[in-house]
């Protein structure tokens, strides 16, 4: 369970004279699952990368409790949309990567890796090279690799964006199951409305570029959730509401 609060204050980012992100203020409580929803190119990845410490804001601050974020760190685990397993390491070695960097004893590394291999359904694939895995399995391994560090929060940038529809739904259920058990703070970037509503306890709608938080929609569906909530009237109502918001932004970004 996470116990630190993420504070984003007045964060903006411009690339040259192109403004990608207008001032964003956001507080994410420990254990929250926040989805960041917006059309492509609106600055979602930029925001997430700033929280990860992979990019610096032009103005504003990011802090975890009172500790300012000045660079990447293992307490903020990240899963990317592109496949980023280290090709020269096996599944098990990939999952141990962070533990090894932290200088944890080898026996402990193995024990933790085994646990996350089991939890992400990779049993039997420990010694496979990433190349030998399907896209869905690679992302499960990437998730296991981030979780093995026991991070305060998980930053997920369209992690299932490259997967086919069926695999994607299975991955959403897996992620939800893990989150329901561990209650780690999650910041989840997506452009898929169903995905945002199904997973998150709160959805932030980002406007077309330059991005800003256009709307904040709590998702009152109770956890644990399973796929059946997708057919509930509450789900449909939330989806309709977000679709209206998003359509307007997609149109604006297409015109821009």
């Amino acid at each position: 369970m996470s116990d630190k609060t993420l504070h984003i204050q007045g964060v903006t980012r411009s690339f040259g004279d192109m403004l990608a992100l207008q001032p964003v203020d956001l507080t994410v409580a420990p254990g929250e699952f926040v989805a960041v929803l917006g059309p492509s190119g609106c600055g979602k990845s930029t925001l997430l990368r700033i929280v990860a410490g992979l990019d610096r804001p032009t103005a504003g601050t990011v802090a975890l409790d009172a500790t300012p974020v000045t660079g990447p760190g293992p307490e903020r685990g990240m899963v990317f949309q592109s496949y980023t397993l280290f090709p020269w390491l096996t599944v098990e070695q990939n999952i141990r990567f962070g533990l090894r960097e932290a200088g944890r004893p080898e026996a402990e590394q193995r024990e933790i890796a085994a646990r996350f291999i089991a939890r992400t359904g990779l049993t039997g694939f420990e010694n496979h090279w990433p190349k030998q895995l399907s896209g869905g399995m690679q992302q499960r391994c990437a998730l296991a690799r981030a979780l093995a560090n026991d991070p305060e929060m998980l930053l997920l940038d369209e992690p299932f964006g490259a997967l086919d529809h069926q695999t994607r739904e299975l991955m959403q259920e897996l992620l939800l199951e893990i989150w329901e058990a561990d209650r780690k703070t999650v910041l989840f970037v997506t452009h898929d409305i169903d995905e945002a509503v199904f997973l998150a306890s709160r959805v932030l709608v980002i406007s077309a570029r330059p991005g800003r938080i256009k709307a904040e929609v709590p998702v009152p569906l109770p956890y644990p959730r399973d796929w059946t909530v997708k057919t509930s009237p509450e789900f449909a109502a939330l989806k309709a509401r977000l679709m209206a918001d998003i359509r307007e932004e997609v149109r604006r970004s297409a015109e821009a």
């Binding site: 990860a52 410490g53 992979l54 660079g71 990447p72 760190g73 293992p74 903020r76 685990g77 990240m78 990317f80 592109s82 980023t84 280290f86 990567f97 962070g98 960097e101 932290a102 990437a142 690799r145 981030a146 560090n149 930053l155």
Partner: peptide
């Protein structure tokens, strides 16, 4: 992206 992944996993310069 591999370098970035490594740094979010806690790798420093030499790592």
């Amino acid at each position: 992206d591999l370098v970035e992944a490594a740094s979010t996993l806690g790798a420093r310069s030499w790592g």
